[in-house]
Every structure is written in C-alpha cells, then in structure tokens.
C-alpha cells in the first residue's frame, strides 16, 4: 500500500514540476524571480525525495517479506475494513449533502452510519440521528448565522 501511495505522490510531483517548467517562468521580464522560481525548486525537491523514499520502501518491503514482518496496528484486515467503511460513509455523506442539503442529509447519514458502526442499538442510534442534526442546525443556522448546505431538490424544510 505504501508503494502505491508513493507512486501516486510521485505522479503528482512529476506533474507539478512539469507545469512549473513548461508554464511558469523562472525569472520575470525584469530579471527578478518569477512565478516559476519557487515551484521549480519545490517540484524538483519533491520528485527527488519521493524517489528516494520509494527506494527505501522497496528495501523495507523486501526485508519485511524475508522476516515475515507485519507492519502496523490495523494491518490485520479488520483495521482496513473499518477505516474503509467510515471513508465510504463519509463519501456518501458528501454526495447526500449536495442532493438533500445539510439538515436532511445529516439525518440520513447518521442513521446509516450508526446502523453500520453501532448495530443493534436502534433506539440510541435513532435518537442520535435526530437530535444531532437539530443541535447542529440550531448552532450553525440560528446561533452562528452560518449557512448550512442547501438542497439541490426542493424540500418542504
């Protein structure tokens, strides 16, 4: 997984450097540091260091494979599963926010998330799923006068 993350980072670093060298000039017309001055330094440094970190990671992986070493707390499978569940639920919430707006999507999301993460406690989950959005609405919309996400579709509330 670490290698995959580093490869993604390397891709980002290479693209960042490419834009810095192609689109942005190192010096401006008056011979002073231009818009590309800093990005080029940052981009090149990032590419070099990510490559270096990849070499380290490959070496570590080879050593771990030889020693049968397990590299983390949650690497037992269930750790990744639980984190993935929460990430997926969070992404679902991001989509719901756009469609149903802040209040309704929070009720739906909390109901869904709690039924997955806290199964069997229906009353507790229902109470949290209803009370929390009301508290958040009162805090953000009424007390702080901050805007809640509006719904894409017309809702009666």
């Amino acid at each position: 997984m670490r290698i995959v993350f580093l490869v993604a980072l390397l891709g980002g670093a290479v693209f960042y450097s490419y834009v810095a060298f192609i689109d942005l000039s190192f010096f401006n017309q008056r011979g002073r540091p231009g818009a590309g001055f800093f990005p080029r330094i940052v981009g090149v440094a990032m590419v070099v260091l990510v490559l270096w970190a990849m070499v380290d990671a490959l070496r570590d992986r080879r050593a771990a494979a030889t020693n049968g070493f397990h590299d983390g707390l949650g690497d037992t499978g269930s750790g990744w599963q639980d984190a993935a569940k929460l990430v997926l639920l969070a992404l679902t919430y991001a989509v719901l926010l756009r469609i149903f707006g802040g209040f309704v999507s929070t009720i739906i999301y909390l109901g869904l998330a709690l039924s997955v993460l806290n199964p069997g406690r229906h009353l507790q989950n229902a109470l949290v799923a209803v009370i929390m959005p009301i508290v958040v609405y009162l805090l953000f919309d009424r007390l702080l006068n901050a805007s809640m996400p509006p719904a894409l579709i017309d809702l009666p509330f």
């Binding site: 929460l86 639920l89 969070a90 919430y93 991001a94 926010l97 802040g102 929070t106 999301y109 909390l110 998330a113 709690l114 993460l117 949290v128 929390m132 959005p133 958040v136 953000f140 702080l144 901050a146 805007s147 809640m148 996400p149």
Partner: peptide
C-alpha cells in the same frame, strides 16, 4: 466518529 464527520463537513461549508 460519524458525529465528527458531520461537524467537519458542515463547519467547512459554513
């Protein structure tokens, strides 16, 4: 956990 996700999302939007 889910409550923190809600506060993060609505806080950022606000």
């Amino acid at each position: 956990g889910p409550a923190v996700v809600v506060i993060c999302a609505l806080g950022t939007f606000s």
